[in-house]
Design a protein around this nucleic acid. Structure first.
Length: 275
DNA sequence: ATAGGCGCCTGCTGGC
DNA sequence: TGCCAGCAGGCGCCTA
């Protein structure tokens, strides 16, 4: 569910609420997440102070002063929030980290449990984990030559390339569709079929769309809320995502929906062409 | 190399 | 009203 703009919003909202605070207690729920929580991790975290909160692709990285890295992926329905301890725990809360003297807690909630929480000993091990996963560059740091050559070298369609975290990190189903609309490129066009001008248009479109979404604090369709519990607003600005049959905001042609790369894909059949 | 299908989970919606 | 299929911001594994 949450893509780069939502994760970035969580990170920005958590940072001032977490940095400098000490971990007083850690509790784990009964249900397992995508990756198992090692019991050792609980003890390692106790007494540690938060140094910073960062993002890499769709991963949230809570850095502790001693070097530990608590890494969280929100999956489809994850929420990471700071709440007063006296506030009742919402159902599907899987990790609770009490802060300072326990007046507040960092809570990880995830209805579908496609998310994960993992601890790494230090930044080096975390970097190795990202390397081994082949996690690609951040969209904002995409080198135009790299991007062009990745597209030129593949016979996958543009939609599939955008969703591939090894090519570029952080883009998911919503922002893939919105970026392709912004770039006026058809999602079924193959990477090797577009020229360098179109590749550059797509690169810029991704950056533009992601930045717009971050400004609106991400998109809330149903589950997503930021680190302070507030919903995002970008869902009000979707041009094609989730709007099949509605008029294209540019030419009024009805937006189409197809199945591509296993995902629901939205586009304007008139504005989005191969060339 | 790539497409397609499935599985992991829960909850909501729409059609009958 | 009730049931059930289909769908959902992700991702990894398998097969062909």
């Amino acid at each position: 569910m949450p893509e780069l703009p939502e994760v970035e919003t969580v990170v920005r909202e958590l940072r001032p609420r977490l940095v400098g605070r000490r971990i007083a207690a850690v509790e784990i729920g009964r249900h397992s997440l995508r990756r198992p929580w090692s019991p050792d991790w609980t003890a390692l975290l106790l007494g540690q102070r938060v140094d910073d909160v960062a993002r890499r692709g769709k991963w949230i990285v809570v850095g502790l002063k001693g070097g530990l890295r608590l890494v969280i992926h929100l999956g489809m329905t994850g929420q990471l929030l700071v709440r007063p301890t006296k506030q009742p725990l919402a159902p599907h809360t899987h990790l609770v980290v009490s802060l300072d003297r326990g007046r507040e807690q960092l809570r990880f909630r995830d209805v579908r449990r496609f998310g994960s929480a993992t601890l790494f000993a230090d930044g080096e091990r975390l970097d190795r984990f990202f390397d081994e996963a082949g996690l690609g560059p951040e969209p904002f740091d995409l080198c135009p030559d790299y991007w062009r050559s990745r597209l030129a070298g593949t016979s996958r369609c543009l939609k599939a390339v955008l969703l591939d975290q090894r090519v570029v990190a952080g883009v998911g189903n919503i922002y893939a569709d919105e970026s392709l609309f912004e770039a006026r490129l058809h999602p079924t066009v193959l990477g090797r079929e577009i020229d360098s001008r179109q590749a550059e248009r797509l690169r810029r479109a991704v950056v533009t769309v992601l930045n717009r979404a971050i400004e609106q604090r991400g998109s809330s369709i149903r589950d997503y809320v930021g680190g302070s519990g507030a919903r995002g607003e970008y869902q009000k600005e979707f041009r094609v995502y989730g709007r099949p049959g509605e008029p294209c905001p540019r030419c009024r042609t009805p937006v189409e929906r197809i199945r591509l790369a296993g995902r629901s894909t939205h586009f304007c059949p008139r504005c989005q062409r191969a060339c």
